[in-house]
Design a protein around this nucleic acid. Sequence first.
DNA 1: CTTTATCCTATTGTCAGACAAGTAAATTTG
DNA 2: CAAATTTACTTGTCTGACAATAGGATAAAG
Lengths: 246, 246
Amino acid sequence: MNHQQPNYDNLSLFQKLQQELARIIEETPAGERLQSEPELAASLGVSRATLREAMRSFEGQGLIRRRQGVGTFVLDHRQNIETGLEVLESIETQAHRVGLDVKMGYLDINKVKSDVDLAKKLGINQDEEAIRVSRVIWVADRPVAFLVDTIIPGILDEKDLSNGFTGSVLDLIIKRGKPELSHSKTEVIASPAPSEIAKKMQIQRGDVLLKLDALLFDKTGRMIDYSQSYFIPGFMKFEVIRSIGK
Amino acid sequence: MNHQQPNYDNLSLFQKLQQELARIIEETPAGERLQSEPELAASLGVSRATLREAMRSFEGQGLIRRRQGVGTFVLDHRQNIETGLEVLESIETQAHRVGLDVKMGYLDINKVKSDVDLAKKLGINQDEEAIRVSRVIWVADRPVAFLVDTIIPGILDEKDLSNGFTGSVLDLIIKRGKPELSHSKTEVIASPAPSEIAKKMQIQRGDVLLKLDALLFDKTGRMIDYSQSYFIPGFMKFEVIRSIGK
DNA sequence: CTTTATCCTATTGTCAGACAAGTAAATTTG
DNA sequence: CAAATTTACTTGTCTGACAATAGGATAAAG
């Protein structure tokens, strides 16, 4: 007899399970106990081993706490899943979730010959031509972000960026489906606004901006995109869950 | 017969396993394959199920990639484990690891009656007295950080902070062992330097600082400490691994 | 000889069932 | 009534199995 479940769509069982679990955790008030592992596993239609693998990842995010002999409890989260820096999503996606309208003002697309620094960062050869997309993002009639993406050759061309481009390179690649994205390594910096950026964001040169410097990787570990994002402080909230080591 | 392993010290099997795995991943060059799960499990003395739980957490951090039918591969990491924001450690601990000397200049300890905002933040009653510790951290003869911790009553007293206090409330509580710490929820902000802080850090008022606003939780989910940390840009690197949702 | 289809093997993905260990409440005992 | 014990339930871990996948080896077809 066959005990296993067939994989009907291309989402892995584990990924679907993660989504389900995230929903359950989110809907459970902080402090309350979850169903026991055998119960949950049964009701979700997976084995306890698979369920436990998924639980680990949520424990690592500080969303639940497990106590042997007692149970698994939901910690105080308040939309960590949505607002946490650890999930990579575009500003558009984040803004839409909270019902805000996002517009793109000023868009500049051009090719840049990569100098030695950029070549090293992106893992391409010097003098290869990368595509650079710069734009200002407006939310609720205020400029809130200035974004610059530098994308390795062969991923996008100008055509992709001309019709129906909403301002998010990330969303564009995700919608395309290839290459399959994995994660980004993001450095967090405080930076005074350079004059060109200050002008486009209608602020003073030297005003304080939060900058996220990110390298985007696909599932094979290849670098796809080097993205620099400048944010007006206070408008968006960036949070991280930091766990005690050991 | 007993198949299980006894728990000799108070580190859980899983936690020890995580440390071992982190070491192995770190020592394996990027792109190379790890031993197969059955081999690794055997050589680490754990079952494959337990090993897989630990693997999941590293996969979630973008450190490894697993491919069914092929194997598990190490991605390009470069000390993510050490410098990543997702692990909570004191500046002292981070600086010591890279061989830098840390000194504390200016230390101020006093009690503050919590107003309505602070009480709400820390989950204590209004007018309860919290302890506030402010200090400047010098590294290599330069002020690099200004730290303010506000700690709920009953955790520390002035005595703890007078003898042998090195500047890190976090390390102090960890060394103590109680309460057992779990994680912090940290907000990342760009902030101009307030004049009092600017003076103590020998910079200009309004200069750009990176600020980390953190709430520290113990394992029961109780808030312990509200910590505000201001950093001179460029000296420390703060990185986050962000994963694609779904 | 080249190309295509098939088989084989190693690897991760998932499962079922078991026992160990910790916790809290109920029960028994003094 | 208080302390000790039992009991029931929970998470932690182990074992051994089979499913699904991918890549190389091998055989068949042209």
